[in-house]
Simulated scan of single mutants.
Amino acid sequence: MKTNWKSPDIIIGKEATGKFYYRREVFENEVWKEIEKGNNVLLAAPRRVGKTSVMKYMTENPKENYKLIFRNVQGIDDEKRFYKTIYELIIFCLSKFKKSKTLIQNYFTKMKISEITTSGIKIETKDIDYLGEINSLIPQLDKDGENIILLIDELPEVLHNLYLKDQKETALNILKNLRHWRQEDGFRKIQFVLAGSIGIHYVVKTIAGRSSDINDLYKITYQPLDESEVLDYISTVTKNASVQYDEEKILHIKNKIQYFVPYFINLMLDEIDKAAIKRNDPKITIEHIDEAFNAIIKNNDNFSDWKKRLTDYLPKEDFSFINEILTHISHKDQISIQNIYDIAVKHNKETDYMDFIKDLEQDGYIVENSQSYTFISPFLKEYWKRNNPIHNA
C-alpha cells in the first residue's frame, strides 16, 4: 500500500463526534427552538440517522442559561439505578449553575457531595431516596435561573428491560414520573430531549396499553440527508482522501443506496476504500462501487440489529405479522394495501394493522409509494431477502 494513503474521515459503529460529525444545523436549531419555548422533545428518527451525534454536539455547544448533559441509559434494568442516574445528571448540571449558588452549595454540603464528574458523583450520604430528592430539589431552583436539559438516549431499552423482568409497574411508574416532571409547574427548570433507536411508541403501548403517556412530547423527525447534503457530505469526508469521487461516481452511489443515512454512505465509502487499498490503486470505477455494495449486503453484521430490535421489543405474534410483511416486500419488491390486509386477517390484526405499518415507516424500514409499500433501503431489502427465504419466491 502507498505509504501516504488517506482514508475518508468517517466512523462506523459509533456515533460521529468531533471531526466525524456532519452538522445538520436545521435540526439543531429546531430542537433549540422547542427547548427555548419550554417544550420537552422526542427526537424521532430511524436507526443510524445520526440523532445521538446531534444530541452530543448540542451538549458540547450549549446556549447561554442552559446546562446540558447527555446519557445513554441503555444498560439500566433497575428502578433505583434509573432514578440515581437522573439524579446524578441533575447534580452535574447544578454544579455548573451561576445562579441559585447558595441553595446548591448548601444542598451539596447537606448531602456530602464531594466529587462531581460527567460519569458520576461521589456522595457520602447513604440510602438516598433519589426520586424523593429530585422531587424536593427541582422546585426550589430560581425561576429566573438556568435550565437543566437532560438528553436521554435509549429510554425504550430501560422500559423494555423492566418489562421483561416482570416489573411492568416499575416501568409504568417511570413513565408516570417522567410525565410529572414534564408537566408540573414546579419542574419548569428541567426539560428532556428523549430519543431511541426504535419507536418509543412500541414499548410504551406494550407496557401501558396506550401511547398517550408520551403525547405531550414535541416530536421532531430527524430526516436522512437530502440530495444536496449527500453531495456535500461525500465531498466533505473525502476531501483529503486518496479515493476521490466525481459526479458520476457519487450519482451511482446514491442510486445504489437510495436511503441517505450517513451509516449506509459510510459503509459504501469504507468498503470502496478497503478494496482500493488491496489493489493499491485509488482510481475507482462503477464496477468497483457495485462490488462494494454486493460485499456489504453479504455481511449480516451490518444490518442484523434492525431485525433484532423488532424481535426484542415486539410480542412474538406482532413480530410474526410484521416479519411476514417485510419478507413479502423483500421478495416481491413491494406490497399492496390489500396484501397487507390479507396478512393482517391471517394474524388477527385487521383492526390495527395500519398502526404497525405507520411504525415501520417511522422507524426507517419501509416507505409508501403509490398505494403500496417498499423497503426504504436496498440494503435492508437484500438483508431480509437473504435471511427469510421463500420457496419458489
Score class of each variant (00 low, 15 high):
Ser212Lys: 15
Val237Arg: 09
Leu225Gln: 07
Leu251Gly: 01
Ile265Leu: 02
Ser197His: 07
Ser235Phe: 01
Arg210Glu: 15
Gln244His: 11
Asp185Glu: 05
Ile250Val: 01
Val230Gly: 02
Arg210Trp: 13
Tyr245Asp: 03
Asn255Trp: 13
Leu269Ala: 08
Thr221Cys: 09
Ile272Leu: 14
Ser197Leu: 10
Glu184Met: 09
Arg179Phe: 05
Asp226Tyr: 15
His180Glu: 01
Tyr218Lys: 09
Ala195Leu: 11
Met268Pro: 07
Arg188Ile: 03
Asn240Gln: 13
Asp246His: 14
Gln223Phe: 12
Lys256Tyr: 12
Val204His: 05
Leu251Tyr: 02
Lys254Trp: 02
Leu175Ser: 02
Lys249Tyr: 04
Leu251Trp: 00
Val203Gln: 00
Phe187His: 06
Gly209His: 10
Ile220Val: 10
Ile200His: 01
Ile190Glu: 10
Ser212Gly: 11
Asn255Tyr: 12
Phe260Ser: 09
Ser242Ile: 09
Asn177Glu: 01
Asp185Ala: 02
Asn266Lys: 05
Tyr218Ala: 05
Tyr218Arg: 09
Val204Phe: 03
Gln244Pro: 14
Thr236Trp: 02
Lys239Ala: 11
Arg210Asn: 15
Val243Cys: 07
Gln191Ala: 09
Leu194Phe: 06
Leu217Ala: 01
Leu231Glu: 05
Asp270Leu: 14
Leu194Cys: 07
Asn215Ala: 15
Glu229Trp: 06
Asn255Pro: 06
Trp181Leu: 07
Ile272Gly: 13
Lys176Phe: 06
Val230Thr: 01
Ala275Ser: 14
Gln244Asn: 12
His201Asn: 12
Glu247Ser: 10
Lys254Pro: 04
Tyr259Thr: 10
Leu194Ser: 07
Glu184Arg: 06
Ile257His: 09
Gln258Gly: 00
Trp181Ile: 02
Ser212Tyr: 15
Val261Gly: 10
Ala276Gln: 13
Asp216His: 15
Asp216Tyr: 15
Ala275Asp: 15
Glu271Gly: 12
Glu271Phe: 14
Lys176Ser: 07
Arg179Trp: 06
Glu227Leu: 12
Gln191Ser: 12
Tyr218Met: 06
Glu184Ala: 06
Ile190Ala: 11
Gln244Ile: 10
Asp216Leu: 14
Asp232Ile: 00
Met268His: 12
Ile200Cys: 00
Ser212Ala: 13
Ser242Gly: 08
Tyr259His: 15
Val230Pro: 01
Ile220Met: 11
Ile253Lys: 02
Tyr259Asp: 13
Tyr233Leu: 00
Lys205Pro: 01
Leu269Gly: 07
Phe264Trp: 13
Ala208Met: 12
Ile207Gly: 01
Ser211Gln: 12
Asp213Glu: 13
Tyr233Lys: 05
Ile234Glu: 00
Lys219Asn: 09
Tyr263Lys: 08
Phe187Ile: 04
Ile265Glu: 04
Leu231Met: 04
Tyr245Ala: 02
Arg188Glu: 05
Pro224Ala: 04
Tyr245Thr: 04
Ile265Arg: 03
Val230Phe: 01
Ser228Arg: 13
Lys189Arg: 14
Leu267Phe: 14
Tyr245Glu: 00
Leu267Val: 10
Asp270Val: 10
Gly186Lys: 08
Thr236Glu: 00
Ile214Trp: 03
Ala241Phe: 14
Ala208Lys: 13
Lys189Cys: 04
Thr238Ile: 03
Arg188Ala: 05
Ser228Pro: 07
Val243Met: 07
Ile220Leu: 12
Thr236Leu: 00
Ala241Tyr: 13
Tyr233Asn: 03
Ser235Pro: 12
Ile272Ala: 12
Arg188Tyr: 04
Ile190Ser: 10
Phe260Ala: 08
Tyr263Gln: 09
Ile198Arg: 03
